[in-house]
């Protein structure tokens, strides 16, 4: 009981919106001025894309409790759909292509979400693998999707919004940042709405949810649709803003796992968690390679780096699952509360 009461004593003093607004002001106003092209290309763009994918998966897995291993498939569906809409529909603005790509990903999400009506947990996770393998296979098999490119590779179109070209690293960063901001805000609104509470109700107790009249089947499919929409748009950012050239193999099972790890490490059922997790997953290999190079010199080549990354990342995930199942977000909140408490009591 004492622990719970102390939570209330050290409640945050700032209103909820202050931190996000400050962060956004920094991201829009300061980062474009100080960031180098390396920072945008290698860190911020993949960070934004993976964070958004994490937000999407968190809606499905963290909030609605439906485990999915098909995230990369929905990213691929979004990326290739946007490419094709952009290529084949004359006069469709880029934003329109992206929105329709999200809708396509959502439709595929609903189809592969149908097993969730009967399956739970591991069984459902395995059935979402079907999405992973099917989408990747279809995109490779039918060259129409990549406009008959021999290798299945697609090249991103020029990014522009109402005539404003966004081709440089900064432009693509602002483009990605804007989409991520809007969708994250909407996702935040969603999880605090009645629909979001229905997601949590189904996750926490499906029978009770059904008894009190929550439309369980419809709500589960809605979770799949919304989640896939967001992940699909994240795929577009990944392909159009970050890599610029993608092939179906880039959206393999490893990517799905990466997104799952992001939300586990960052914190399930937390919008912020996706950003925390994505930051860790991206910064961690860079830090490791710097550290390894510094300590071991030439011995630490790319093979060793790759292997040590996997080992350390695996260990990290195990540690998180055991020590902090609520993820980095819970860790961060606890540290912040301690600091605030220390600051208040001085």
């Amino acid at each position: 009981m004492t622990a719970i009461t102390s939570d209330f004593v050290a409640a945050p003093v700032l209103p909820k919106w202050v931190v996000p607004v400050l962060l956004l002001a920094f991201a829009y106003g300061v980062v474009p001025l100080i960031g180098s092209s390396y920072v945008f290309e290698a860190i911020l763009l993949p960070f934004l894309a993976l964070s958004l994918a994490g937000v999407g998966l968190n809606i499905l897995t963290g909030y609605a409790g439906q485990v999915s291993l098909g995230s990369a498939a929905f990213m691929a569906a979004g990326a290739f759909a946007a490419y094709n809409f952009n290529l084949r529909v004359e006069g469709l603005p880029l934003i329109g292509s992206i929105f329709l790509a999200g809708i396509v990903a959502a439709a595929i999400g609903i189809v592969f979400g149908l097993p969730s009506l009967r399956l739970k947990g591991f069984y459902l996770a395995v059935s979402t693998l079907a999405a992973q393998f099917f989408v990747q296979w279809a995109l490779t098999k039918f060259s129409w999707f990549s406009n008959n490119s021999a290798s299945g590779v697609i090249d991103a179109p020029r990014l522009s919004i109402s005539g404003l070209a966004l081709d440089g690293a900064v432009g693509r960063y602002l483009f990605a940042l804007t989409i991520v901001t809007v969708l994250t805000f909407l996702a935040y609104r969603l999880v605090s709405s009645q629909t979001g509470r229905n997601f949590i109700a189904i996750r926490d107790n499906e029978t009770a949810a059904r008894i009190i009249g929550i439309p369980v089947l419809r709500t589960k499919l809605l979770a799949f649709a919304i989640s896939s929409f967001i992940i699909g748009v994240a795929g577009v950012i990944w392909a159009f803003a970050y890599l610029r050239t993608v092939e179906p193999d880039g959206f393999d099972l490893d990517r799905s796992f990466q997104i799952l790890f992001i939300i586990i490490i960052g914190g399930l059922a937390s919008i912020r968690g996706a950003f925390f997790g994505a930051a860790l997953i991206l910064v961690f290999p860079l830090a490791l390679s710097r550290l390894g190079g510094f300590l071991l010199g030439d011995l630490f080549d790319s093979g060793v780096l790759d292997m040590s990354q996997r080992i350390v990342l695996g260990a990290l995930i195990i540690l998180f699952l055991i020590l902090e199942p609520d993820g980095l977000v819970a860790l961060w909140d606890r540290v912040r509360r301690r600091l605030l408490f220390a600051w208040q009591s001085t």
Partner: peptide, 17 residues
Amino acid sequence: ALFKGLSVLDNVASGLA
């Protein structure tokens, strides 16, 4: 059979879902 991840108020309000 409560929804552990929701507040007391949200649990009760879910009875009107």
